[in-house]
Design a binder for these strands. Structure first.
Length: 808
RNA sequence: GCCCGGGUGGCGAAAUCGGUAGACGCUGGGGGCUUAAACCCCCCUGUCCGAGAGGACGUGUGGGUUCAAAUCCCACCCCGGGCACCA
């Protein structure tokens, strides 16, 4: 036993905190490093899966600090949200009380791991000190026209009884509870993220320290497409409608047009016609279906309106259909249908017997139906013979010259719906007055604090709506009776700016001091789960850009580097409370201590990959720590001084190679191999000590190991550092450097191949030249056997590593 | 369907630029220490052939490029993730 684990680990946890080792302030004389993990929802108990992430973050905090950076690593709580509210419904305990108990428990557990933060900057989104600035931000957005209320069909989760943002609907289901989402028409608040779509897209190109995967997901989510919007008249009427297409070059192949069932023109077109009854029942059926059911239908369905539209390129009349494969939410909610070049249109046309005209010549061997590829235009009058790109720009010019349409850009991303009909969130600071309409709550009346309620149960509207004393308020403009907004904000609003607040967390006068934010921002390393690739990470980028435009933040992007860690898996599933497969750290703390757990979490596999939990692993890293302890302590005072030998120098060289490899591996987030290099050196040192070698370099070897180990297994390395008589605290020591001369090898093993197969290995000087290497290879006795008198066709020498002799 | 990842021993994995495949750890086996056990220490642990020296094979499958391929190219299979009636 190396020491009393509980006692010693607690001792160092106290000292790091009491001596404020990781509390920092702005210091322009040192390079800064802002290290942030996605602040957690306070769900209560940390399991091994969580500890993996915290081990990474803490490693970086300590490592960067030793490298001389002014490191800010703060911690906070994403403490609004449904779990606390659902617990309140069940138990009657106020969500605040529930949440704060959970936070206290999680803090204790973070401390137990030895994770260090600047706790002076702790924040929690449910605290009025925090969410008053949510409200302030909301009003700033409102002033700038970036927050607006409108009646719109929205995603409604029937179980959680609230609306959801598009980003929170996954495969037509609620991201949180998995129930099928339905459409409802509601008056809701939106943030105008679409105004920032182009910048959010463009700046992805500069985020080269982000995983490509996340950038691709954001690109797809933003979904930019270039095309053309033009207007089509309805024959025999004075109405017209716009269509959007990415393939205006195929306009001559339009054989019908389609309106989404929700299209505002639909009513007018069918009213009083013989088609009205059929159309009406089709529309009603479509409206009653959830997005999932619409898709599940498989086959495309639609109904003819009896009307015709005039194709502006050739004045031909095409039938107007209503079909739910056209979505009201994208483009103009109406399309020109070109079955020859669009598979969906092809399917529809085939089913309903509509004419098909090809306007791009498919290759001779083409066997498909609709042809989407490039080729010369046909049946397209003045476009005939042009390739797609040419035809596209020519027809757009033509539309623009005639004033019939224009080139347009379309985005898939929609405005961010932030209203929620739930209690445990930040109240939206708006008032509706019968005289003055929508009126913002004056800034000096913030925060709008939500009152306690008796019933948290969701009933299709916010529980706050039942509290008359909250709802009824004087209009700030006219003083007359008015009503408060009772919806709360999406919790993703809270999390879209907390990393700015950390920079000045205790400011009671302003959301933050821009000077402090400019010192710390951008976040140098952001760490979290990939599940936020298009939710939080897109919202946070949007809000940062808004602050930039407000002149309050210099940075245009919040997170310079993003690291998305893998999940911990057990029994084939992600470790989580709901799956019932969590491994609780308690018994491991008792048996092995925090260091062995941390080291195993680092060692278990590549940090970006999912990893499988194994009980034996902690045993292994604990053994390694025991060995380090023994090597460091058993030999103290027993080492006889002797002159340095070649063996000593070689051990020291290995120690420096370890320093180099561990440093480089941490820098490239290869923590598992960094640990492996420490183990390899420990094996080398142990063998040398056993053989009575490496006496003189022993002290230096241990010193270097402890420095490297300190961000990974901080308790043991601090304790040893102190016991070995170093007067300083290890955490404040400088990260070691390696001596390149020592690291370089004089002699290396050269591989000799015959026809690409390894046949011999010889030690050669590292600076050997090609001719000598070749000569040595050809002189090898073992090689001679393999050459067997055959003709040597070629010798490839890559000194000092390899010589390949080709015989034939 | 489209777009990303990934597939290497009994297991987790390593191989950073095309140059010794399997570092490091786990598991398992053998031995030492011990009255005994635990701890600890030493040796072995990809498959096959061989007493051994050694040899053949081997990174999902099939081809290709190359003196040389886990790594590059083509086709395919499987697993994971994202997007998906987006006009």
């Amino acid at each position: 036993m190396r020491y009393d684990i509980q006692e010693t680990e607690a001792k160092w946890q106290d000292r790091w905190e009491d001596e404020r080792v990781f509390n920092v302030s702005e210091d322009p004389t040192r390079p800064k490093f802002y290290n942030v993990q996605m602040y957690p929802y306070p769900s209560g108990d940390l399991h091994m899966g969580h500890l993996r992430n915290y081990s990474y973050v803490d490693l970086l905090t300590r490592y960067k600090r030793m490298q001389g950076f002014n490191v800010l690593s703060p911690m906070g709580w994403d403490s609004f949200g449904l779990p606390a509210e659902n617990a309140a419904i069940k138990t009657g305990v106020h969500p605040r009380e529930f949440t704060e108990t959970q936070i206290a428990r999680m803090k204790t557990q973070l401390r137990r791991l030895g994770a260090v933060y600047d706790w002076d900057r702790e924040l929690a989104s449910h605290s009025p000190d925090y969410y008053r600035w949510d409200q302030w931000l909301f009003l700033e957005l409102y002033d700038r026209g970036l927050a607006y209320k409108r009646n719109a069909p929205v995603n409604w989760c029937p179980v959680d009884q609230t609306v959801l943002a598009n980003e929170q609907v996954v495969d037509g289901r609620c991201e949180r509870c998995d129930s099928v989402v339905i459409k409802r028409d509601l008056d809701q608040w939106f943030f105008k993220i679409t105004d920032y779509a182009q910048r959010l897209l463009d700046d992805l190109d500069h985020l080269d320290a982000w995983p490509d995967r996340v950038r691709t997901m954001q690109r797809n989510w933003i979904g930019r497409s270039e095309g053309c919007t033009f207007s089509m008249e309805v024959a025999g009427t004075d109405v017209s409608f716009d269509v959007y297409t990415t393939r205006p070059d195929t306009a001559f192949g339009m054989t019908f047009a389609v309106l989404a069932p929700e299209h505002p023109l639909v009513d007018d077109l069918i009213a009083g016609t013989e088609h009205e009854t059929a159309a009406r029942s089709y529309i009603d059926a479509a409206n009653g279906l959830s997005e999932i059911d619409r898709l599940a239908e498989g086959d495309k369905t639609g109904v003819f309106t009896g009307r015709f539209a005039i194709n502006p390129v050739n004045s031909s009349q095409v039938p107007i259909w209503i079909a739910d494969y056209v979505l009201m939410g994208y483009g103009t909610g109406a399309i020109m249908a070109v079955p020859g070049q669009d598979q969906r249109d092809w399917d529809f046309a085939t089913k309903y017997g509509i004419e098909i005209i090809r306007t791009v010549q498919p290759p001779d061997d083409f066997e498909g139906e609709a042809y989407l590829g490039d080729g010369p235009a046909i049946n397209s009058e003045f476009l005939d013979g042009m390739q797609m790109a040419d035809a596209k720009s020519t027809i757009i010019e033509w539309f623009e010259e005639k004033g019939l349409g224009k080139g347009t850009v379309n985005f898939r991303v929609r405005d961010w719906l932030i209203s929620r009909q739930r209690y445990w969130g930040c109240p939206i600071p708006m008032i509706t007055c019968p005289t003055d309409g929508l009126v913002p709550v004056p800034a000096d009346q913030l925060p709008v604090i939500h009152p306690d309620v008796e019933d948290y149960a969701p009933g299709g509207r916010s529980p706050l709506a039942a509290v008359e004393s909250f709802v009824n308020v004087e209009c700030p403009v006219c003083g007359g009776p008015a009503k408060r907004e009772t919806d709360t904000m999406d919790t993703f609003v809270d999390s879209s700016w907390y990393y700015l607040r950390y920079c000045d967390a205790q400011n009671s006068e302003a959301i933050f001091d821009p000077a402090k934010v400019d010192y710390w921002m951008e976040v140098d390393q952001y760490i979290g789960g990939v599940e936020h690739a298009v939710l939080h990470l897109l919202y946070a980028r949007f809000i940062t850009k808004v602050f930039h435009d407000m002149g309050m933040v210099e940075a245009k992007e919040p997170f310079r580097a993003l690291f998305t860690q893998g999940m911990l898996v057990k029994d084939g599933a992600k470790m989580s409370k709901s799956k019932g497969n969590v491994v609780s750290p308690e018994e491991y703390y008792a048996r092995y201590g925090a260091d062995a757990i941390r080291l195993f979490e680092l060692f278990i596999g590549p940090p970006t990959d999912d990893a499988v939990w194994s009980d034996n692993g902690v045993e292994g890293t604990s053994r390694f720590l025991d060995r380090v302890w023994r090597m460091a302590t058993d030999q103290v005072g027993k080492i006889e001084e002797r002159p340095a030998s070649d063996a000593d120098r070689e051990v020291l060289a290995e120690a420096h190679r370890m320093v180099q490899k561990v440093t480089e591996d941490i820098d490239r987030f290869s923590f598992n191999t960094a640990v492996a290099h420490l183990m390899t050196f420990a094996n080398t040192l142990q063998a040398a000590l056993r053989d009575g070698l490496a006496r003189e370099t022993h002290t230096e070897s241990i010193r270097l190991m402890l420095l490297l180990l300190s961000p990974m297994a901080p308790h043991l390395s601090h304790e040893l550092w102190e016991r070995l008589g170093h007067g300083s605290m290890l955490a404040t020591e400088a990260w070691p450097r390696w001596d390149p001369e020592l690291v370089a090898r004089d002699v290396v093993t050269m591989v000799i191949q015959v026809n690409g197969k390894v046949r011999d290995r010889v030690d050669v000087p590292a600076d050997i030249d090609a001719a000598t290497a070749e000569a040595i290879a050809l002189a090898s006795e073992r090689i001679a056997e393999w050459l067997g008198g055959g003709e040597i066709r070629k010798v490839i020498a890559r000194p000092p590593n390899i010589v390949n002799i080709v015989v034939g």
